[in-house]
């Protein structure tokens, strides 16, 4: 259950939302509100689903992809190392290597992208390695989510990404914090 939840969050931050995802979010809107106090569809009520997909694609680009004013959801960049593949990325990769986890060469993914770090937590959950996951979450995503949240809130024009980034922080804090 936790692994699936983490992978959903990974999907949301890996690329822009598609129609099936939005349909399911719409179906679970009330539960999200109850569990997290967040309504990701707030501000999108006036759109039909296809319009919402388009609007969120532009929003995703504006917040995470750029080309101007964005902040990639990548640990080394958010931590102010000023580059992809910074020192924190190497730490993340070393963690993966020592746990028998690898990023397929040529995948184009950055090891410290939020999605990949959440996927790593999902793998550790599936293995039942809670302490390992806790250590990783504390040393990595939980170190930089607050700053990413500040950026997302500053750039966002709808509630979707702020809601899910806060949901991610809420879940990780609840599961690994303390």
């Amino acid at each position: 259950m936790v692994a699936t939840a983490l992978r959903l969050l990974a999907s949301i931050f890996q690329r822009e939302a598609d129609r099936p995802l939005l349909e399911y979010i719409k179906a679970h809107r009330q539960e999200l509100l109850t569990s997290f106090g967040l309504d990701p569809l707030e501000g999108l009520d006036g759109y039909d689903l296809d319009e919402a997909v388009d609007a969120l694609a532009a929003e995703y680009c504006r917040i995470f992809v750029g080309p101007v004013g964005h902040l990639p959801p990548v640990e080394s960049v958010v931590l102010g190392e000023g580059r992809f593949w910074g020192p924190s990325t190497e730490t993340v990769v070393n963690f993966y290597v020592t746990r028998g986890i690898s990023l397929p060469e040529g995948s184009g993914l950055l090891p410290d992208h939020l999605s990949v770090e959440l996927d790593c937590l999902a793998i550790l959950e599936e293995r039942g390695h809670h302490q390992d996951a806790k250590a990783f979450a504390g040393e990595h995503p939980l170190r930089w989510l607050t700053d990413l949240i500040a950026h997302v809130k500053a750039r966002a024009t709808s509630a979707f990404y702020p809601a899910f980034i806060e949901a991610a922080q809420g879940l990780l804090t609840a599961r690994y914090g303390g």
Binding site: M1, T4, L8, Y24, S35, A167, A174
Partner: peptide
């Protein structure tokens, strides 16, 4: 929290 997200994810 995880249950709600998992429900969406599985869907």
């Amino acid at each position: 929290k995880a249950g709600v997200l998992a429900a969406i994810g599985l869907g």
